[in-house]
Design a protein around this nucleic acid. Sequence first.
DNA 1: TATGAATGAGCCTTCATTCAT
DNA 2: AATGAATGAAGGCTCATTCAT
Lengths: 219, 219, 219, 219
Amino acid sequence: MTQDSGEDTKRRLMDAAGEVFSEQGFKSATVRTICRTARANVAAVHYHFGGKDGLYTALLSEAFEAGLRLHPPDMGLPAGAPAEERLFAFIHSFLLRMLGEGRSTWCGKLMAREMLETTHALDHMVEQHILPLSVHLRGIVAEILGGGAQTDDPATRLCAMSIAGQCQHVFRSKPIIDRLAPDLRFDEAGIRSLAEHITRFSLCALKHYAHSAEKPTRP
Amino acid sequence: MTQDSGEDTKRRLMDAAGEVFSEQGFKSATVRTICRTARANVAAVHYHFGGKDGLYTALLSEAFEAGLRLHPPDMGLPAGAPAEERLFAFIHSFLLRMLGEGRSTWCGKLMAREMLETTHALDHMVEQHILPLSVHLRGIVAEILGGGAQTDDPATRLCAMSIAGQCQHVFRSKPIIDRLAPDLRFDEAGIRSLAEHITRFSLCALKHYAHSAEKPTRP
Amino acid sequence: MTQDSGEDTKRRLMDAAGEVFSEQGFKSATVRTICRTARANVAAVHYHFGGKDGLYTALLSEAFEAGLRLHPPDMGLPAGAPAEERLFAFIHSFLLRMLGEGRSTWCGKLMAREMLETTHALDHMVEQHILPLSVHLRGIVAEILGGGAQTDDPATRLCAMSIAGQCQHVFRSKPIIDRLAPDLRFDEAGIRSLAEHITRFSLCALKHYAHSAEKPTRP
Amino acid sequence: MTQDSGEDTKRRLMDAAGEVFSEQGFKSATVRTICRTARANVAAVHYHFGGKDGLYTALLSEAFEAGLRLHPPDMGLPAGAPAEERLFAFIHSFLLRMLGEGRSTWCGKLMAREMLETTHALDHMVEQHILPLSVHLRGIVAEILGGGAQTDDPATRLCAMSIAGQCQHVFRSKPIIDRLAPDLRFDEAGIRSLAEHITRFSLCALKHYAHSAEKPTRP
DNA sequence: TATGAATGAGCCTTCATTCAT
DNA sequence: AATGAATGAAGGCTCATTCAT
């Protein structure tokens, strides 16, 4: 209708796709539903994105970037800040990206679905966004582990995985957590509390990991 | 064909459904595929389970119990065993249930799906199986935390969540982990190694959690 | 509905496909039209033939065979009959197959369309049905040409082509012939007259072909 | 883009349509493909020709005339040339128009299509171009038949049809001929050879047709 | 005059489900 | 209890066409 309706329709389609895909998953979501939500024609998706796949890929890319832009993993901290603070920033921003409100959470939901029904978009996503995040976290971890730990050491990798796992859990198991611990709130303060716990738990672990027994003691 | 094919067909359908659903997801899986796998007629699913949904629900119920029966959370340890060993057993059995081979893993995949599209089956699942597991874990955690920590303390809950999160992560983010760390193997030895790391990481954390600062230090 | 409705529906679909495909061509014809004509469900085509392609291939095969069964190229003549008579039989049956009435003419129409929009079904058709016909004709031609002419000689091939061309023309250019020579009738007697002309024309040519100048004289 | 693109675009569209329509057929060819080939906008076809149909009709008209202009049926021979030479010229030019390269062949393909789905354009085409060609050929044929044969005699008509049929066959059954006789080439020399054969075959027939038995002998 | 965007009808196909046997 | 055939509702996609600029 308007002169810039070209980009406008594209925007509306992306927004609608974010809603629908993250709620129903790639397979379940239908192009028709997305277009109805976006008040656009069925053919618009194919015109602008080349098909359902194209729309999904474009969405995934954009969602990740939007999330990172809103809640960058260093949360504005200077690169020279102490590792402890940088770890907290990483964890806090992680939770905000996935538990916060608005379109920044699409990404988390979409990725969670991607874990169940992997599409070809995942490879690109890992290379482009997830690997850098992983390197970032492992840099912090290696510094805290100390003792000459490197970013690529197996121990560093495992510890980073333990931290990422804690972060993702509160999001991915939300339905269960809601039932087991109904008093946990996921508002701004609640998210901050969670971030503080995970940071504290992880710092304790990292600081003593190096001096702990390789295998659990068996007296 | 055979005379006792009544119950037999039902059995074969469940097995096939486990395979197909957990590999392709609920929506992607087709009744035809399941029936072909089970060497049964297309209409058999509707005859025995009333439809695709019914089959899925029936499967979900059975899968959890089968998993717990195969890899009980104490792995046969006596109730009086040291908390460290019981923690390792809990973590190890957790991983085995989800990363192992065969029908014990169906449950994990199906539960992961349930996190995205909650059905009425979840409430029953939580009450019946997950809450007991949670209590079990929190018992161990409280004991290790020491200092009079109770099973219901917020700190205990959070720490238990951190442990469960680490366990679930290796399973739920498998597609990503496969890409980021292609050398990680999930055979028997690999699973054991993972369990050892998570136990070690968590023990370090638990043992020093009580004496750590509430908030990350800000020197 | 009835017990043998399985084969019945298949039959009706083939009949409808013959009508629709031969009138509209492969691309233009729609599965819906065919199914409506056959009073069958849209999905029936995919159930019985695996798709539009499958139905088309099956139809083409069957139509050719039905035509040949109804009007065999020797028209019942003994193998030892004189070559002239066998040539007439070949030409006459050719015209009957394409200009006659009923389903035997589908094949001609379909093949005509195949010449314009070749589908993958053509290769099979050539190997299975057309090559044998070609060999048959060339056998007769070589015998009439005399002088030791072989079935595979270039001259034999060209002459056979000239004969086949005449036969096909009356069918393929029917709309034009109807306009240029409106008095030509294509009833039983008319077809016989045409066959007699083509046989006469071709016999004259074949009998003197060998002794004619290689190139048209240029005095 | 350029100032004179008005007529220029129309030209390019016609050329592109000739290529695409004659290769893919009316239904298969898409407006988009044609416009892409012509480096024109999707809407250009509708602007200049009123739609896909209009473009096709316009093309059909032009193609026939272009073909006849390029390869006239007398191929420049004086009207007084011997009938044998004029027959060869007629046949040769016929083949060149349909088997040659470039835009002269569009006509043949489009006409072949018209035989299957007659449009209102055919009547005009017959009156304007085909009837004159028919008269031309029948004049030659009557002369060769001799014995006072007239242009309008049934025998003359039938023989002319036999000749036209041979010419059209090599073009209309090309996909089959390519498979049955893959060594036949349709380059300049190949086309000349074919014209020589058809002329020779037809001359043999015409010269003895009058004295042959009405019906094939039955000894 | 020419264009990029938008439209809606229609196509082939797939699927869960039901029916008659 | 079990089967093969049939059904109808979508689903993704393509296409000719139109619209606003």
